[in-house]
C-alpha cells in the first residue's frame, strides 16, 4: 500500500563521482519489493516543488531500512545529497510494480543488465533471486570508471562484468558489445537503463523472456497526472501505459520502443 512517511536518514555517502548512496529508515520499508521506487520530497518548502522518483536499491526489512542510489546532478538531487544522518525526509511509497522474482524457476539463471543509474534496482533484485536459488549474471555499462559503483557488492552475488563507453574500466563500448563477447547462457533477463539500451536488448534477445524497467519524467508518481506516458505495441483501445503506476517494470514487448 502507498503511504507517506517522514523517514529518517541513517547513512549517506558519495560512492562514486556525484553518485550517492542514501539509507532511510521507516515503516514503509515493510511493503517494498525490488524494482519499485520511492517518491522523495527533498524540501519542505515549494522550491523545488515536485518529488523525485528514485528506485530502491536495497531493502532490509529487519532493520526497517531501505537504500537508494542516485546521481546528484539537478537541483533536487543536490539538495537530497546534503541530508545528514538524523534528518527527516518526506517519502511517498513504495510506488509502481517491481520485477517478478518468480519468473525464473529455482536452479535457473537470470541475466541482469544495467546502464548507469539504472543499475541500483538490480541490486535488490539480485539479492532476492539468489535467495531463491537462482544464479545471477550481472552485465553493467557505465560512461566511465569514475561513475561505476557496487562492483564488490554484485561480485559476491554472481559473475559481474563491466563495460564503459570510454574503456576506462572493463570492456570498451556498450552492454550489447559485452554480451556479444560473453554469450551468457540464461533463462530470463532483467534490465534497467537508458532507452537505447533497452531497445538494443529487446532486439538482442528476441526469443528470451525479459523484463525492462523504464524511466520517464514524472509528476505525481501514482498514475493521476498522465505525465509519464509510454506508447504500447498494442494498438487497440488503450495504447499507452503509465510508467509510474503500470510500470516502471514491463515485460519485454509491451512498450513500443
Amino acid at each position: 500500500m502507498i503511504q507517506q512517511e517522514r523517514m529518517i536518514v541513517v547513512r549517506q555517502s558519495e560512492i562514486a563521482h556525484h553518485i550517492f548512496e542514501l539509507t532511510l529508515q521507516g515503516q514503509i520499508v515493510q511493503d517494498m519489493n525490488p524494482g519499485q521506487f520511492v517518491h522523495i520530497r527533498v524540501s519542505d518548502s515549494f522550491e523545488p516543488l515536485l518529488r523525485r522518483p528514485i528506485s530502491i536499491a536495497n531493502i532490509n526489512k529487519e532493520a526497517n531500512e531501505a537504500t537508494v542510489i542516485y546521481r546528484a546532478e539537478g537541483r533536487g538531487t543536490s539538495i537530497l545529497s546534503q541530508k545528514q544522518v538524523g534528518d527527516e525526509v518526506d517519502v511517498l511509497g513504495p510506488l509502481g510494480n517491481g520485477f517478478p522474482v518468480d519468473a525464473v524457476r529455482e536452479g535457473g539463471t537470470a541475466l541482469l543488465v544495467g546502464g548507469g543509474i539504472g543499475v541500483p534496482p538490480l541490486y535488490e533484485l539480485s539479492h532476492q533471486l539468489n535467495a531463491r536459488g537462482i544464479r545471477t549474471i550481472h552485465v553493467f555499462g557505465f560512461a566511465t570508471e569514475q561513475v561505476c559503483f557496487y562492483e564488490d557488492q554484485f561480485t559476491t552475488l554472481g559473475d559481474t562484468h563491466f563495460v564503459t563507453v570510454d574503456g576506462s574500466k572493463g570492456t570498451k563500448g556498450f552492454v550489447t558489445d559485452l554480451l556479444e563477447e560473453l554469450k551468457p547462457e540464461f533463462d530470463v533477463f532483467y534490465a534497467c537503463g537508458p532507452l537505447p539500451m533497452l531497445r538494443a536488448l529487446e532486439g538482442f534477445y528476441p526469443e528470451k523472456q525479459g523484463y525492462l524497467s523504464f524511466e520517464e519524467r514524472m509528476g505525481c508518481g501514482i498514475g493521476a497526472c498522465f505525465a509519464c506516458i509510454c506508447q504500447t505495441t498494442d494498438q487497440s483501445d488503450k495504447n499507452y501505459v503509465k510508467v509510474c503506476s503500470d510500470g516502471p517494470v514491463f515485460p519485454k514487448g509491451v512498450v513500443d520502443l
Binding site: F46, E47, P48, L49, L50, E216, R217, M218, G219, C225, F226, A227, C228, I229, C230, Q231, D237, K238, N239, Y240
Partner: peptide
C-alpha cells in the same frame, strides 16, 4: 473521442511551480 495527448516530456518543474502540456488525454 479518446485522446492520447501530447508527446513526452509533458511536464517540467519551474520555480515554485510546474509546466504541463498533457493535451487532454482521456479515454
Amino acid at each position: 473521442e479518446t485522446r492520447i495527448g501530447n508527446p513526452t516530456p509533458r511536464v517540467a518543474e519551474t520555480a515554485a511551480g510546474m509546466l504541463n502540456a498533457i493535451g487532454l488525454q482521456n479515454p
